[in-house]
């Protein structure tokens, strides 16, 4: 098969970007989308041109590195997969495919299809953890956790931190990302002591990083490669409300470095 690519090319963070067109020929429908880009890049390199910079690593949908907007959809046309799990059989012979980076104010473009997502790390540093000093823990089975709760926590924990939720949102909100981590930890008994500070601090860090507000349209959940449910956003809102009301707890200001 053969496709025409319209790819976002941008030399660096401050340069003006533009779309450029490339022909990709002799493709096998069983190639992954990134393997197709490999072929294009080998040709560009051979022709003495600059290959397309694209974020990728594990190529099995778990590391969260790949992050391409394909025909206006984060990670392309299929549901529940990442860019690296998108295969050429999802496209038709002769298609024109538009490829862009995940766009958001909090995710500046570094080059071509690569963005800087360190804002997610900042949110994690503000509260995405349970304090458990190494070596100080009780026996793992001393704290039984019902299977339903454990499974629900695992559903939230499946987040790969790719940022598709942000890219899909018209407000560039990171609520699905934040709610997935806060939801996982807040559901578990181990997470209870820090529950209030966790949500307050994570939400504060999210706002500080420049992500927008959530207007409950749930494009995020539809675009999520791990199909994380928007119900975690509702849970985050409830947890946030309760935490705000409890007067003894105040949000610590986070420091952005």
């Amino acid at each position: 098969m053969k496709v025409t690519l319209r790819v976002w090319r941008q030399e660096n963070e401050t340069a003006q970007g533009r779309f450029e067109e490339y022909e990709a020929d002799n493709l096998n429908p069983n190639m992954s989308f990134l393997e197709m880009l490999d072929v294009v890049n080998e040709k560009l390199t051979g022709d003495g041109k600059d290959p397309i910079a694209v974020a990728h690593d594990c190529r099995e949908g778990i590391c969260g590195t790949c992050s391409s907007m394909i025909n206006g959809e984060p990670h392309g046309p299929e549901n529940g997969v990442t860019t690296c799990q998108t295969y050429m059989r999802s496209f038709n012979d002769g298609d024109v495919i538009t490829v862009e980076p995940f766009r958001a104010e909090a995710f500046p473009v570094l080059k071509d299809l690569i963005t800087d997502r360190k804002a997610f790390d900042k949110i994690m540093q503000a509260g995405g953890f349970i304090t458990a000093r190494t070596g100080s823990c009780q026996d793992a089975n001393a704290l039984p956790i019902g299977k339903e709760v454990a499974d629900l926590a695992m559903d939230a924990a499946a987040c790969v931190g790719c940022g598709a939720c942000v890219a899909a949102c018209k407000n560039s909100s990171a609520m699905l990302f934040v709610s997935a981590k806060a939801g996982q930890l807040n559901l578990l008994p181990q997470g209870q002591p820090e529950k209030d500070t966790r949500v307050l601090n994570m939400v504060a860090a999210m706002d500080e990083a420049g992500f927008g507000n959530c207007t409950n349209q749930y494009e995020c959940s539809a675009a999520c490669p791990k199909e994380i449910s928007e119900e975690f956003i509702s849970k985050l809102n409830r947890d946030y409300l309760i935490a705000s009301v409890r007067s003894s707890v105040k949000a610590k200001p986070t420091t952005m470095k």
Binding site: C137, A140, L143
Partner: peptide, 14 residues
């Protein structure tokens, strides 16, 4: 023990 304390959601029985 350490991982469970951190909130790692290991598979559990009913």
């Amino acid at each position: 023990d350490q991982c469970v304390a951190q909130g790692v959601p290991f598979a559990r029985e009913y």
